[in-house]
């Protein structure tokens, strides 16, 4: 069987035995794949540096009937994104973006928009470095693509309008809550202006990260809101999130 060729972003890899490597990648047409790269650590001819995390490659691979692991034959490097290694925060945020994408799109089903979003996120970090705004945009857009973004600009329970000023937010109940639905007792308080900003961000192009400025309040309240929303949808806490928090 001739190999299939896909664009792919390397999410991570683990060494196997003396010379092999198991690589997890995201592709636009086949979703998340796990592949076995025989001899990848010993021979630099077929893979070179192309299997490093965050790299974008043209991947030559062959499905293996009945097995989860595909066979990786060759990887042509498109971009290694060496700018991600400029500082620890950028490196850690790139890792977080990859882990979060994998956690929310953990199936071998094509999702070109998620691939495009991760590519744009990594390219932005590669060029501009880490920022709280890039993280917030990535989280918000991934939640949107996964179809689990919380109700922001109206009450999640009665669908009524929200009052001006701070309102309650509880991701477990669907999102923003008006006073009549018990918003005052919700764990998070988020200003209506922040919810409006997040709503407007949902209208921006999915792959645009540059030149979007967010106020400190939007970053702080929006970050807490998205963390609350993600918590309910992730099967376990992300290792890279704990690493980022420890920096």
């Amino acid at each position: 069987m001739p190999p299939l060729i896909s664009s792919a972003i390397i999410l991570r890899h683990v060494d196997y035995g003396e010379a092999d490597r198991i690589v997890t990648v995201l592709t636009p047409d086949h979703g998340r794949l796990k592949g076995f790269a025989r001899g990848a650590r010993r021979s630099r001819k077929r893979f070179g540096t192309a299997l490093e995390p965050f790299a974008e490659v043209r991947l030559h691979w062959v499905p293996r009937p009945g097995g989860e692991l595909v066979s990786l034959r060759e990887a042509e490097l498109v971009s290694l994104r060496t700018g991600l290694r400029r500082d620890l925060e950028t490196l850690a945020l790139a890792g977080y973006g990859c882990e979060l994408t994998e956690a929310l799109f953990d199936e071998a089903v094509g999702f070109a928009e998620a691939f495009g979003l991760l590519r744009a996120f990594l390219d932005h970090l590669d060029a501009a470095g880490a920022s709280a705004g890039a993280r917030l945009l990535m989280e918000l857009r991934l939640l949107t693509l996964a179809g689990i973004v919380p109700h922001l600009q109206h009450c999640a329970e009665c669908h009524g309008a929200l009052p001006e000023g701070p309102v309650g937010f509880d991701a477990g109940r669907g999102g923003s809550l008006c006073p009549g639905c018990g918003g005052a007792a919700a764990g998070l308080r988020v200003d209506r202006l922040t919810l409006g900003s997040l709503g407007r961000l949902l209208q921006t192009p999915l792959e645009r990260f540059a030149d979007i400025r967010l106020s400190p309040r939007t970053l702080q309240e929006g970050g807490a809101l998205l963390a609350d929303a993600l918590r309910g949808h992730l099967p376990k806490p992300l290792k890279s999130a704990a690493f980022l928090a420890g920096l």
Binding site: R12, L91, A92, S240, A242, F243, G246
Partner: peptide, 10 residues
């Protein structure tokens, strides 16, 4: 070595 993806910290 530190590994953000594996959660290996200092």
């Amino acid at each position: 070595a530190l590994s953000p993806l594996d959660g290996i910290g200092p």
